[in-house]
Design a protein around this nucleic acid. Structure first.
Lengths: 134, 134
DNA sequence: ACTGATTTGTACGTATGTATC
DNA sequence: CGATACATACGTACAAATCAG
């Protein structure tokens, strides 16, 4: 399961394991992950290592942590489609803290930045917006 | 400077402080951050708290950690422009571990996903690619 | 070639706080 | 009110890679 003597750090191994369970659907959107304490006991790790594994999945945008209710597989958001206009240039980056708060964004979600020809700039949460070139 | 009695966690306060220094240019691209030990001593924090602050900036894509050389303000990558075609739909998300390795991507960098009308899908590192609608 | 210092990474432990149930 | 679960913050120890001398 998890091999403390392996080259890969144990918290990375745990993150891999949980990521695989999410990817395979064994852990479906909305499902709770086992609590940190349960995971620590089950795999024989410290709670610190479990939290490092969880932190990886948070940064990847795979889970939501609702303190202190638990940790859940993130469900897909309903995405609105925004039309691109002539001369628009699209980029993506992680939001600043301020942007995350003001746009009510979850962790591990990038922003799409649309720079229009006239110099205006729009910033969209990438989990709720997709861009279409008509 | 950092207030242990404040509502905001000390490691978040330190992250704010460093983020501001990067945003203002006081820490310029390529500049090294003080070592974890130096930061811990300077601000009277444990190394654990310093590492949590650093982790935030890593997830935001603001710094590169080169072990054991040090931690540096991330310089901007040279970005190639890719043209969008009729019917393309653009989204962004964090890469999987496998994608990050195969595309040689730094931490805290999203991918741009271009779904073309014929069903093909292209995945681009968001720090090296921008998309243009002609 | 080697040695020691520096720096980040991993992994453990403890204690306490806070919000939910 | 107690149990549960995540958050914060401290500490220790050792590993691994780089660099200076």
């Amino acid at each position: 399961m998890i091999d403390p003597t392996a080259d890969r750090a144990v918290f990375r191994q745990l993150a891999d394991l949980l990521r695989d369970q999410i990817a395979s659907g064994e852990l479906a959107p909305g499902d709770p992950l086992p609590s940190e304490l349960r995971l620590a006991q089950e795999y024989g790790l410290s709670r610190t290592s479990v939290r490092q594994a969880i932190a990886i999945l948070r940064a990847e945008g795979l889970i939501n942590v609702e303190r202190p209710r638990g940790t859940f597989v993130r469900p897909a958001e309903a995405a609105e489609t925004v039309a691109l206009r002539r001369g628009d240039v699209v980029s993506a980056r992680m939001p600043t803290e301020a942007e995350r708060r003001s746009l009510h964004m979850a962790e591990g979600v990038p922003v799409l930045v649309v720079q229009s020809a006239d110099g205006d700039q729009a910033v969209h949460p990438a989990d709720r917006v997709r861009l279409a070139r008509s």
